[in-house]
Structure formats: C-alpha cells, structure tokens
Design a protein around this nucleic acid. Structure first.
Lengths: 116, 116
DNA sequence: TTTCATTGCTATGAATATTGTAGCAGTCAC
DNA sequence: GTGACTGCTACAATATTCATAGCAATGAAA
C-alpha cells in the first residue's frame, strides 16, 4: 500500500496539503488507535500491541506500523514499539478529542438527535 | 456498513469507549476530510462536496454522509450539506492538527528521518 | 405542458484493504 | 539442543472503496 508523505499527492488528494496527507494516514484502520494506545500504555511488543488493539490482524498491524514509522510517529527499540516525540505531540492533540468524545457520546445516547 | 455509535462495541473495539468509537468513525476514508471541507468552505451540494473531496465516489460519499449525519456532525438543509454545531466543535479541534501537520511535513521532507 | 438543468442518490462490477488463521525464522535463556 | 519468546509473512475469505452510468424528483423557463 502506498505510504502517504507530505508534499506528494496521496490516496484521495492531489493537493499534497499536509493536513490531507495526515488525514489519509490517520484515516486508516487503527492508525489513531495505535498512536493512542502506545501513548497511554507505554511501549510494547508486536503481540502486546496487537492484543491491546482488539487483536487486529498481524497483517494490518504490520502495515500500519510501517506507515507510522515512515511518518516518524512510531519507532522500535529494545523496549518494543513506542511513539516518537512527534508521535507524542500528535497524541497530545488527540487528547481533547477524547474528552470531547465523551460529551458527544452522552448527547448521542438519546438517538436519533436533532441538532445544529 | 455498521455505523459507529458511542456505548456500543464497534469495528475494532469491544470497549465502546467514546474515543474508540470516534476513531472508528473518523478512521474511514474521507470522514475527517468531509468535516474539514464543509467547515472551511461552507455548505455545499452533494456534487460540489464530491468535487472538493477529490471526486470521491458517490457511493462512498453517500455512506460517509449517512454516518456523519447519524453522528450529528453533519446535516442537510436548503443551503446543502453543512456541519452541525457539534461538527464545528470537532473541526475546531482538528485545526491544531492542520498547523502541526505543516511542521511535520517540513521535517519529513528530509526523509528518512532519525527521531525519538 | 413540455423541456432542461440540477438535485440527491442507487446499481454494478472491478480494484483494493482488512481479517483470521497458520506458521516460519531469528534470538535468548536454560 | 529445547522451549519460549520475538517480529513478522502466506494465504484465502470478507469488507470497503472506486469508477462509471444512470434514475427519479424538483424547479425554472419556454
């Protein structure tokens, strides 16, 4: 699978705009979940990560890891897989999403909702 | 396709944790891009939206719209499709990602990068 | 009342991504 | 060597996405 890189046209966007590249990268199965999990729970092995990510298939995990490593968001050392500094920056920006999601979830309980 | 809703197990997560539900919803092709585009460029018709989203297929656009409407992030009125109040909240949290992505993109130019 | 353009959207088949299961090769402690 | 771990790969089934064509409804103009 093509790995998205800023400046180059990606799946679904000819512009190469960094935000669209990022959306392409993160808009793949478990991409954000992996960054989230590694950040919240610390470094872990391939199989540990697989378990924490709801036992996603090794195929997909491996693909996702390759993409996230290419994007310098995740790396690998003796402690296992872990987020990089940049990965942690990204995580920090996802935290507000986590808080917001709780409220969103509450409101959405009383489905279907009128809104605007 | 199953539409993610907070509190219920979703594709890839049995926990039903709101953040995982959100990741499931947003981790689909063009989901974040649609919220971004509608927020930045204002309401537009189905076909306009399609064009702005790099001519993604109507099938996928329609599916994504249904999911985002079910999640109360997007709705539809006489002006066309647009983000809801909650959708705008989400967008505002994505804005920092856009800024960060620019830096990330710059650094990543000199691929492959050492980091941590 | 018959065009005509525009609307949202569906049908279809091919291409691509993801899943689930099994298992391999390397490393390390014993 | 043996066993228990490691990171992965192979393979076939399923799910998702794409690209193209086109339909039914609406509203404006002729």
């Amino acid at each position: 699978m093509k790995i998205p890189a800023p400046g180059k046209p990606v799946r679904g966007s000819q512009s190469g705009a960094p935000i669209m590249v990022l959306f392409d990268l993160l808009g793949r199965r478990w991409a954000m979940g992996i960054v989230w999990t590694l950040s919240e729970q610390g470094p872990c092995t391939f199989r540990e990560l697989q378990e924490k990510c709801d036992n996603l298939s090794p195929t997909t995990l491996n693909t996702r890891i390759a993409e996230l490593r290419a994007a310098c968001l995740v790396d690998h050392d003796t402690t296992g897989y872990r987020v990089t500094l940049r990965g942690r920056e990204l995580y920090k920006m996802l935290v507000p999403l986590g808080l917001w999601a709780k409220e969103w979830g509450k409101d959405l309980q009383g489905f279907p909702g009128a809104q605007t």
